[in-house]
């Protein structure tokens, strides 16, 4: 299962980022997110959505073996992560993010919270 985004439906409310931070860290802080909404300055009113498509490249590249697939989604083990950020730099979606105050990259674990709340159904869970 992975989160699929239809960016043309996104309104930029960032509720997904709030939901993600709550799930991953139990905090009110949309900056600690694994889904990233940015507005397109050259095309105002349009948004870019960066979210993991579970391609597995991070697992392939991780020199520490800190990434593994659990219940269909790749997850990072903070105990094993050496903060080399190869995965962050190489992620094709730009969806491995390092929140301020944290060291281990955070990524989408397909929990579905953002999908459930997205008011325009711009996000969906797909196989």
């Amino acid at each position: 299962m992975r989160v699929d985004a239809t960016a043309s439906r996104c309104t930029g409310c960032k509720l997904c980022q709030l939901a993600c931070a709550l799930h991953q860290f139990g905090e009110n802080n949309p900056k600690k997110t694994a889904i990233l909404i940015t507005s397109d300055l050259l095309n105002t009113g349009h948004y870019r959505v960066a979210v993991c498509d579970q391609c597995g490249l991070c697992e392939e590249l991780c020199p520490a073996g800190a990434v593994s697939k659990v219940d269909g989604a790749y997850v990072v083990d903070p105990e094993e992560c050496t903060y080399c950020y190869i995965c962050v730099n190489e992620c094709p979606q730009g969806a491995m993010l390092v929140p301020s105050g944290k060291h281990t990259p955070v990524k989408c674990i397909s929990c579905g919270d953002c999908v459930e709340l997205c008011p325009t159904s711009a996000l969906a869970m797909v196989e």
Binding site: G12, C13, L15, L18, H46
Partner: peptide
Amino acid sequence: GSKACFGCP
């Protein structure tokens, strides 16, 4: 298109 405020459905 639509343009939402922060956290608004």
